[in-house]
């Protein structure tokens, strides 16, 4: 059933394949983000209560969703690394972690900048904000643990376990606003019901979200290529690649 996937477990094939994806991802991300950010920041209507401040939504929410989505992807890579002992999954974890951490930081910083004018405070230790901060520390942990070992293959197992176990935090982040009293409001778009925002605001958000997702995809592919090269530096195909670059 999964036979068609098998060729991609070869580092060289995976390297070539991600190389082909990058220009497409870049192009799509550029087009979607240009349209989405223009619509969101300049064209969409202001909110009835919050006025222009609501435009932070178009960056804050895509970043927050991706911070969790990328962690989930990293946890799946961790599972494949542990169960099927895929070497490439280790490269994937190392590729995803800093990108995910960046989106988490963006979500936290834009959230603080939004909280100050609307709520009246940059930060409050409510369940949503605190669990998202823990997500950032989990990313930092995965990055630091990966770099703590001289020999990459040695640390890989510990990193995979950490990436996998941290997934417990994801439902906590998502449901924190329902399970406990928080200053943060409930979900606007990430729910099964219809989104709680006007269509003229929802469409720019969707475009921005996919723009950010493709941008993340492109950054991760580029990092993945670097990780694959670093972990296979003694292989003949990498040497040939390096020689070809020289000429």
């Amino acid at each position: 059933m999964w036979k068609w996937l098998h060729p991609y477990a070869n580092p060289e094939v995976a390297y070539q394949f991600t190389g082909k994806l990058i220009p497409w991802f870049n192009g799509i991300a550029f087009i979607l983000l240009s349209i989405g950010l223009f619509l969101g920041l300049a064209y969409s209507p202001a909110d009835y209560q919050q006025g222009e401040t609501v435009r932070i939504f178009y960056i804050h929410v895509p970043a927050a969703i991706l911070s969790m989505g990328l962690y989930f992807a990293m946890a799946i890579a961790g599972l494949s690394a542990l169960v099927w002992q895929l070497k490439l999954a280790h490269a994937a974890i190392a590729a995803i972690a800093p990108v995910g951490a960046a989106f988490t930081a963006i979500a936290l910083i834009t959230g603080a900048a939004w909280g100050k004018p609307m709520w009246g405070t940059w930060w409050i230790w409510d369940a949503r904000l605190t669990s998202e901060l823990i997500l950032l520390f989990l990313y930092f942990g995965v990055i630091a643990l990966g770099n703590a070992f001289e020999d990459k293959s040695q640390g890989a197992k510990a990193v995979s376990v950490l990436a996998l176990v941290g997934v417990v935090n994801l439902p906590i982040i998502h449901y924190s606003v329902e399970w406990w009293n928080t200053l943060h409001q409930g979900a606007t778009v990430t729910k099964f019901a219809a989104p709680s925002m006007a269509m003229s605001m929802y469409i720019p958000f969707v475009i921005c979200f996919f723009g950010c997702a493709f941008l993340a995809g492109s950054l991760i592919c580029k990092r993945f290529q670097g990780q694959v090269l670093a972990r296979n530096s003694l292989r003949p195909w990498v040497k040939q690649l390096a020689l070809a670059e020289d000429n």
Partner: peptide
């Protein structure tokens, strides 16, 4: 504290 609804 505001709710999760946004509209023009």
């Amino acid at each position: 504290k505001h709710d999760e609804e946004y509209m023009p």
